[in-house]
Amino acid sequence: MNLFDYKRPSSIADAVAAGAEPGAAYLAGGTNLLDLMKVGARKPDVLVDISRLPGLGEIETLQDGSVRIGALVRNSDLARDAGFAKAYPAVAEALLSGASAQLRNAATVGGNLMQQTRCLYFYDQQSRCNRRQPGAGCDAIGGETGKHAVLGWTKQCIATHPSDFCVALAALDASVELQGPDGARSVSLEEFYTLPTEDTPGGADVRPGELVTALTLPADAAHFAGHARYIKLRDRTSYAFAIVSAAAMADISDGVVQDIRIAMGGVAARPWRARAAEAALKSKAPTPELISAAAEAALADASPSGDNAYKIELAKRLVHRAIEQALAGTPQTIPALPGSVFAAQAAGR
C-alpha cells in the first residue's frame, strides 16, 4: 500500500473541496476501497474520510412520497429498517443477499454504488485492464470468463457490476444524488453507469470531486410492495457474487399487470433493466407463455463474451422464475436465506 494522507472533513462542502484535489479518494465503509488499495488497484494520495459527515445517515420519506436514503446509511441498517423493508421488500432482500453480515454492517449504500467490478483481471495488477489503465487492453478476454458479461460488453471491457442492491434499485428507477465542486446533480442510477464502448471501458459516471450524497426512490416505487422478489444464483449460499441475479416487481390489479419492472445483475457493466421483458407483460393478464416470452425478450440481445454462453440460458430461466415468484406475491417475511432459490427450504417448510 502506498503512503497516503488522511483527512476527515466535518462538512460536505469541505469534503468536496478535499475530494476535488488530484489523487483524492472518498472513504466510507472501506469494504472495497481498502481491498483495492491493498492489491494496488487504487493508489490514492489522500483518503478523504466521509464516514462521520453529518446529515448523510438518514432514511427520509419526502412529501411527494419519494424516499431519500443518505449515502452513509449502512447496508444492514437499511435492510433491517422495518418501514423501508415493507415498502421495498425486494431492495431489502437484495441487500441481505449481498456479501456477508460483517461486510453489510460496515458497508454504506453510497459505497455500494461506487464499488468496483470483481473481475479477477481487474484485481490482478499484472494483467492488462482498460478500467484500471485506459488503453492498456483487456486480459479478461480469452481468460477465465465464466462469470463475465453477456450484455452490453465490448472488447474494451467484459466485466460485470457486482452489486445486488443496485439491481433492485434500477428496477425501481432510483436516482443518485451527487455533490461536486460545481454544485449538485441527480442522475438515474441506470445512467450512472456507462457501458463500455468501442473506445472506452465504461464505469461509474463520477466527475472529479463528486460525492454521492443520497439515493432516491420515486414515489411510484412503493406500488410494487405486494409483488417484489430478488433472486440470486451463485455456487455457494452466502458470501458469493451472483452468477446471474434478477429482480422482478409487479403492480397488479384485477389480475392485470398494471406495471412491471425487471432488472438483471451479473450480466453487464450496469444493473440491466429488461424493458422488452417488461413490455411483454405490461397491461396483460400474465400467462406462462407471456412469462416465457418476457424471459426470452430479456436476453434477446445477449451474446457470450467468452466461456459463458450458459449464463444466457441461466439468466432467461432466472428471469422466468423471478417473474413467477413476484406474481405469486411478496413473502410475509424476508427469507432466512435472502435471495436464495432455497429460500423456502430454509424457512423450514
Binding site: 479477477l120 483481471y121 490482478d124 499484472q126 494483467s127 486480459d139 480469452g142 481468460g143 477465465e144
Partner: peptide
C-alpha cells in the same frame, strides 16, 4: 484457478 496464459493464480 490459474490463468492459462500467465500462469498466475487469479
Amino acid at each position: 484457478i490459474h490463468d492459462l496464459r500467465s500462469g498466475r493464480p487469479i
